[in-house]
Design a protein around this nucleic acid. Structure first.
Lengths: 345, 345
DNA sequence: TTGAAAGCGTTACCAG
DNA sequence: CTGGTAACGCTTTCAA
């Protein structure tokens, strides 16, 4: 039982395949009567156009590829949701691949998506070798980077204002009276560097700068962030003077940190105040509700989708390519109990 | 700058396109020397096969469609992860669509995926009208249902043993001394019914059956589960006698319930013990760590992928279709503080 | 307003 | 072992 083809409809109606094709795509030069007949038969036979055939001739697949390091981390699934909604309404399908934060796998899935001739790639890459990106550029496929930039590549980007995130978090800790503020972060990825930068600048501005032992960085899977946070915090708490505030790169890190503080017999926020980043939806239900910097992940997805569609459209017009744009979403501090402290000032 | 085609490679090497095609697919009747030359040139030119063209002629797209009600809920993203890993290794791509728990959207995305000629559909449907499924069957596309069954449809299924989940959760509450056990659940979806059934049977077995006012059910988006749990729990807590144990259909529901109990000035687990379902990774970090029944969501994804691939292979062999299988994963109780109680027995 | 011819990049079938 | 021919289902271009 083969799928219905345009040919079948054309035969039934005594018209040509071309007529059917045009009627289906609302081409102007088709009589209303013919179109109606076609549409009627289409419905009767439950005809579905074959996208592969269409893609072959038009050169457009109507698919967008999304590559993320980790599907399970809600930050990325929210991005996926934002993307998916916009794309669905625009008639695109979303092909999602997880790189599992592994460079090898990332290359492999990107190659796959190139072979699929996706119309645009949306990529949150971690260990980014320019090599993988180069293949995308060579394949002449437009792409949008999200969340993480690639040093040396001037590409379209949608993400958070990471330095500002670092500033906001650190300023807040200072405001609630912290004097010895530590940071637990990522290592190589650009958001980690931006947030660290914001943290450092803010400390410097307030003349609170500390030795490097108050900064712990690791590259990690989000899955293991809890444990990394726990271990990192444990070592930070042994320092003298002990930190009275900790700014964590992500909420999962902050959750591990919180557990370490409590296990060490200290109180949050009285002894150590804590700020995370991501504003995950369960933050409010934690042992101690977590103050966090919201990154607007859903909006990142939406904006990336809009940008992707714009790039595809620009591609089909043979005009000059628009310059790459950087869209930075404004971070917003969400204050919860983990930083409710008397202001010592 | 057009993508490289087999034709280009054939021309460069002075062989035919067919030879290239065969060499690329490890066809037996090609000399090692020729294959080596082809592969070398393929690498040099960074050739990527055009999957659309291949799909057109083979009738197989090497894509699998996944339809879930909500990408953000970690239950589904874990399923997606399990699926994605297995499929990637088998050379398939995953096209993911969220139905946003909306029947209209669900139909629409399923139609899209049919038009894409995905080789198999993996579907977790909520408001399932047989109609949507019928189109899949008519299109002759194999499919696997996950998590939620469709009444009246004898299809391949991978999910949890929901009645057993209800039994395990309720037995546990009884064991820790609860006498008045309420249930907050879903309404129409089959897992909700199964868990409710297990709950009821267990109460009956222990002669603890209660009036229907101790059971609250709602169909809901996972996004709103927190609030639904909160409201439902608030009303349950006004009953006389007051419940001393609550079994919630999902962890998000349980989190809302926990908040309601605490807001009502009661203690967990001393006044009300609480069991959820899903064993989400943050359960352990909640205000009161949550006892939960693990559903093995990652495994559900893996098994669904394996099944999907098996169905596709079976399809290509013209043998008789294997009978639909039901794969039920064993639930496992994870005990945490929300049910640590003295045993009153 | 309609249609005929050509072709998109690939693979299947069958000859050489 | 190699290759020609046809076909997959659709759209584009141009002519009627």
């Amino acid at each position: 039982m083969k799928p219905v083809r345009m040919k079948d409809i054309a035969r039934d109606l005594g018209v040509s395949v071309i007529t059917v094709s045009k009627a289906l795509r609302d081409h102007s030069d088709i009589s209303a009567a013919t179109r109606a007949r076609v549409l009627k038969r289409v419905k009767e036979l439950n005809y579905k156009p074959n996208y592969a055939a269409r893609a072959l001739v038009t050169g457009r697949s109507n698919m967008i590829g999304l590559v993320v390091p980790d599907l399970v981390h809600s930050f990325y699934s929210e991005i996926g949701n934002g993307l998916g909604g916009v794309l669905r309404k625009a008639g695109y399908n979303l092909v999602i691949s997880s790189s599992e934060e592994d460079q090898e796998i990332e290359s492999q899935v990107i190659d796959q998506l190139i072979a699929r001739r996706v119309d645009c790639l949306v990529i949150a890459s971690s260990n980014w070798t320019a090599a993988a990106l180069k293949r995308v550029i060579e394949a002449n496929i437009p792409f949008v980077l999200i969340d993480r930039r690639v040093p040396g590549i001037d590409a379209n980007f949608v993400g958070g204002d990471d330095e500002l995130i670092g500033v906001i978090a650190t300023e807040h800790l200072i405001e609630v009276g912290c004097k010895t503020i530590a940071h637990i972060g990522g290592a190589k990825i650009t958001p980690a560097r931006g947030r660290l930068e914001g943290y450092k600048k803010t400390l410097a501005k307030h003349r609170l700068a500390l030795g490097p032992e108050y900064i712990v960085t690791h590259d990690m899977l989000d899955e293991s962030a809890h444990e990394v946070g726990y271990e990192s915090a444990m070592s930070l708490l042994k320092l003298n003077p002990r930190p009275d505030g900790i700014f964590c790169f992500s909420d999962p890190l902050a959750i591990g940190t919180m557990r370490a503080i409590l296990d060490a017999g200290l109180r949050v926020p009285e002894d150590v105040a804590l700020v995370g980043c991501g504003n995950l939806h369960y933050d409010v239900f934690l042992r101690i509700p977590l103050t966090s910097v919201d990154q607007q992940s859903f909006a990142i997805g939406e904006r990336a989708a809009t940008l992707a569609i714009a790039m595809i459209d620009a591609e089909s017009q043979s005009g000059p390519k628009p310059k790459p744009r950087s869209i930075l979403l404004q971070p917003k501090l969400i204050i919860r109990e983990s930083t409710y402290r008397k202001i010592h000032a």
